[in-house]
């Protein structure tokens, strides 16, 4: 039951004590974004699809599984009776990044991307043709529904560990060193402090 004690101002004083405690002794929890970046999940359903033209058989399963109908494919039969995607376009402006296309692809030919910075100045540039869809630059496949990639990616940094990596450290499984892991996660975060808070 909620209690019904008469209050004489002690509740306000308690609150003031808590805020001044935070002011003095708690670490800043925000991440200074453009300079500091947390490592995203290995399974991130990031802002781009990555398409593998070698593996794609132009079966159009991804286009059929898309709830929005965003994937536009036109195919052609090659002389050896296989198919080839002549047009493979994705309208990212309408995509909701549900990942169902990646999930449905029987040949692992399409992957979710890892990047999350894809702002553009006009809508036309959100429609991405097949030349730009292949893995290049920062357009790299994520581990979503692709366990073979997931193992190679750097572990996610978790705020619950104060922004540190989430890797389970076992002797035979040292955390992979990659530039992204080494990317700064602010050093202000003190895990010891966090543990002290939780135990009550």
């Amino acid at each position: 039951m909620p209690d019904n004690r008469i209050s004489l101002g002690q509740g306000i004083l308690k609150g003031l004590a808590l805020t001044i405690k935070h002011f003095i002794s708690r670490p800043i929890i925000t991440v200074q974004y453009p300079e500091e970046r947390l490592v995203t999940s290995r399974r991130i359903r990031g802002c781009d699809l990555v398409w593998d033209s070698e593996r794609c058989t132009a079966c159009c399963t991804c286009a059929k599984s898309c709830p929005q109908g965003n994937i536009h494919i036109e195919t052609k039969v090659r002389p050896d009776n296989t198919r080839e995607a002549v047009v493979f376009e994705i309208d990212h402006g309408r995509s909701m990044f549900c990942g169902l296309c990646v999930e449905s692809c029987p040949f692992d030919a399409i992957h979710m991307g890892r990047s999350y910075e894809r702002a553009t100045y006009n809508r036309d540039s959100l429609v991405i043709p097949k030349e730009k869809l292949v893995a290049q630059g920062d357009r790299q496949p994520s581990g979503y529904f692709r366990p073979q990639f997931e193992e190679t990616l750097p572990p996610q940094s978790l705020l619950i560990y104060g922004g540190k990596s989430s890797e389970v450290k076992t002797p035979e499984n040292p955390p992979p060193q990659s530039p992204a892991t080494a990317a700064p996660v602010s050093e202000k975060k003190e895990p010891a402090e966090r543990e002290k808070v939780g135990v009550k």
Binding site: T19, H22, F23, P27, I28, I29, T30, Q32
Partner: peptide, 9 residues
């Protein structure tokens, strides 16, 4: 200061 109270910068 209010930012510091709220654990941000």
């Amino acid at each position: 200061v209010v930012g510091r109270f709220q654990l941000r910068l």
